[in-house]
């Protein structure tokens, strides 16, 4: 009896996800951008934006990807959506290999994974009414659906994300940033996807509006049974939203674990520095800040060995030659550092 209640009670707790099915699995994913140059614009080298990234996301779970700009987190998100073609590796979605899907097969699969974009000002067509923006994906996939039905659905979606009915006939420019992001979310929900990839959904918003959108995303996850891949640079936001967190640096995942372990006992020196750099809104706390020197190296010409060794405060000689593998250090806690064992 207890079991039944447990199953019904859709708990977001991290402990329960181990039993759930895997929705998305990414295995050794690589996305390299060619750099063209020279007389015939030949490919002269590659930017290794995503290099050997592996992770999996369980149904109903939120996986956060954090890292500084240029670490490849957005490229990873876009590759999973197949907006970019992976250079190597495998993407498994709901038990199916979608790495090489093309054409109509990919199109059919795409309705199960949608994206919420970063910039609510650039991601909505200024020439379309909000109603049309949300109608379009439904109409695309279900051309035989009656327009009255579709309109009903769209109005329900608008209300669900907190917009009034008359938003249907308005244009994107009539809304504030937070409201636009709600429109973007409604559009992503229109096809009842299983997975939503949210790429910096709140970084363009003010703090007070940011919390509204984060709360909305959390409510929708319960209502629509959604799985999120939440990409952001703000560690506190990602921790608030996610069950597990992957930390990316120069195209690699350097550490991945559930959010409590990441925050309480970060193993990788980069994670430690990242956490210590977040300013805490508590003036009394004296924090030991680890200030990293220099900038992130160019992904075109990444350092040999461990990608972080050039800025790592704990680097030893071996770090420049041995490339560390992402190893399971504790149950469910993986880190890529030769010093961690």
């Amino acid at each position: 009896m207890n079991n039944i209640i447990d199953l019904k009670n859709k708990d977001k707790a991290a402990s329960s996800h181990t039993k759930k099915e895997t929705l998305l699995e990414v295995i050794n994913l690589k996305t390299h951008y060619p750099i063209k140059g020279g007389f015939f614009r030949r490919t002269i080298s590659h930017v290794k934006a995503v290099d050997n990234v592996s992770f999996s996301v369980k149904k109903g779970e939120t996986l956060g990807l954090v890292g500084e700009s240029g670490c490849g987190k957005s490229t990873a998100g876009r590759t999973i959506l197949k907006l970019l073609n992976p250079t190597a590796g495998k993407i498994m979605f709901d038990g199916e290999d979608i790495t090489n899907l093309r054409g109509s097969k990919l199109r059919q699969r795409r309705k199960d994974f949608q994206m919420v974009f970063q910039d609510p000002y650039a991601s909505l067509n200024p020439m379309q009414m909000v109603g049309d923006i949300i109608t379009e994906p439904i109409h695309n996939y279900y051309p035989k659906k009656k327009s009255r039905e579709i309109k009903q659905e769209v109005l329900e979606l608008l209300n669900r994300v907190g917009l009034p009915d008359d938003a249907y006939y308005k244009y994107a420019h009539e809304f504030s940033g937070g409201q636009r992001q709600r429109i973007g979310i409604a559009r992503a929900l229109a096809l009842k996807p299983k997975l939503i990839i949210a790429d910096e959904p709140v970084s363009a918003l003010d703090v007070s509006v940011q919390s509204q959108v984060l709360n909305l995303l959390n409510e929708l996850q319960d209502d629509f049974d959604l799985t999120y891949l939440f990409i952001a640079h703000d560690l506190s936001v990602v921790k608030h939203m996610s069950d597990r967190i992957g930390i990316m640096y120069l195209g690699h995942i350097v550490e991945i674990a559930d959010k409590h372990s990441i925050y309480k006992e970060p193993l990788h020196p980069y994670t430690q520095a990242l956490i210590s750099a977040v300013p805490e809104p508590d003036p009394k706390r004296k924090k030991q800040r680890i200030v990293l020197q220099g900038d992130v190296p160019s992904p075109e010409n990444p350092p040999s060995g461990c990608p972080f060794h050039t800025r790592c405060p704990m680097a030893v000689d071996k770090c420049s030659t041995i490339t560390p593998e992402l190893k399971e250090v504790k149950p469910g806690h993986h880190a890529a550092c030769i010093l961690v064992d």
Partner: peptide, 23 residues
Amino acid sequence: ELLMRSIPRLDEEEEKLASIEGI
């Protein structure tokens, strides 16, 4: 007060963030 409670914090767990309705 609302501004302070609307930011997610690293050292605390909060179910729901406070939000300031409207703009």
